[in-house]
Computed example of a mutant assay.
Amino acid sequence: MDTTRDRDGEGRARSARPRDGLGRPLPYGAPGVERQPEGVVRAPEETVAEAQALLDAGKPFHAHEVFEDAWKSGPDAERALWRGLAQLAVGLTHAARGNLMGGARLLRRGAGAVEEWAAGAGPERGRPHGMDLPGLVRWARELADTVERTGAAVDAQARAPRLR
């Protein structure tokens, strides 16, 4: 086992390096952005509010971690929704980091997942937990088109979506 890497109590790699607002690792000892704790179980409304605050602050990587917690701990019927939202946040992260092809691909994948979930969701369809799923799908596809057309990284804070 590689003992030079940071590991948790179960031996899984867990980098203790500080990270910037887009989740990129910084040198040890550098000031970084406080990381989201993993495995937090939140009510859906708390998930949406916390993720929106992080997106508004230009921290889509951290919003992705909040969505990931909901995906892993939420009811089976909503896992695909939260996974799709996590993909949208990661797509924005990559587009802001300059990985335009990966960002566009993840934005489209997340949009497709959210759209597919909404189509089969029943009475809540496009507004589970107050979220505007059709608006998020449009936002993601437009942003994917923009990064491909311009070939330029985006400002994560300026291009953050409105979840509700």
Rank of each mutant, 00 (worst) to 15 (best):
96 A>W: 09
118 A>C: 06
46 E>D: 15
7 R>L: 14
28 Y>M: 09
97 R>M: 10
98 G>P: 12
8 D>E: 09
51 A>M: 01
110 G>P: 07
73 S>A: 11
69 D>E: 06
58 G>H: 03
9 G>A: 15
63 A>Q: 06
115 E>G: 13
40 V>G: 10
44 P>R: 06
56 D>F: 04
61 F>I: 04
84 G>Y: 01
65 E>D: 15
21 G>I: 08
35 R>N: 01
82 W>P: 01
68 E>N: 00
68 E>M: 03
34 E>R: 15
97 R>W: 10
45 E>P: 02
13 A>Q: 15
114 V>E: 09
47 T>F: 00
16 A>D: 14
73 S>C: 00
25 P>N: 04
118 A>V: 04
12 R>T: 14
77 A>Y: 01
68 E>K: 01
32 G>F: 12
29 G>R: 04
8 D>K: 13
7 R>S: 03
105 R>E: 10
23 G>V: 11
46 E>F: 01
83 R>E: 10
24 R>H: 07
85 L>Q: 00
78 E>F: 14
111 A>V: 03
30 A>Q: 14
113 A>S: 12
34 E>D: 14
74 G>N: 00
17 R>T: 10
52 Q>P: 07
42 R>Q: 07
24 R>L: 13
92 L>H: 08
79 R>L: 04
77 A>T: 15
18 P>T: 05
35 R>S: 09
42 R>A: 05
115 E>R: 14
112 G>N: 07
56 D>V: 06
64 H>V: 03
14 R>D: 12
61 F>A: 09
62 H>M: 13
24 R>S: 14
71 W>R: 07
98 G>Y: 12
43 A>R: 08
91 G>D: 05
47 T>S: 04
69 D>S: 03
32 G>Y: 13
105 R>L: 11
101 M>F: 13
90 V>G: 07
106 L>E: 02
69 D>R: 03
99 N>V: 01
82 W>I: 00
72 K>H: 13
93 T>H: 06
11 G>Y: 06
8 D>S: 08
93 T>G: 08
101 M>K: 12
35 R>T: 10
14 R>F: 14
36 Q>S: 09
118 A>F: 03
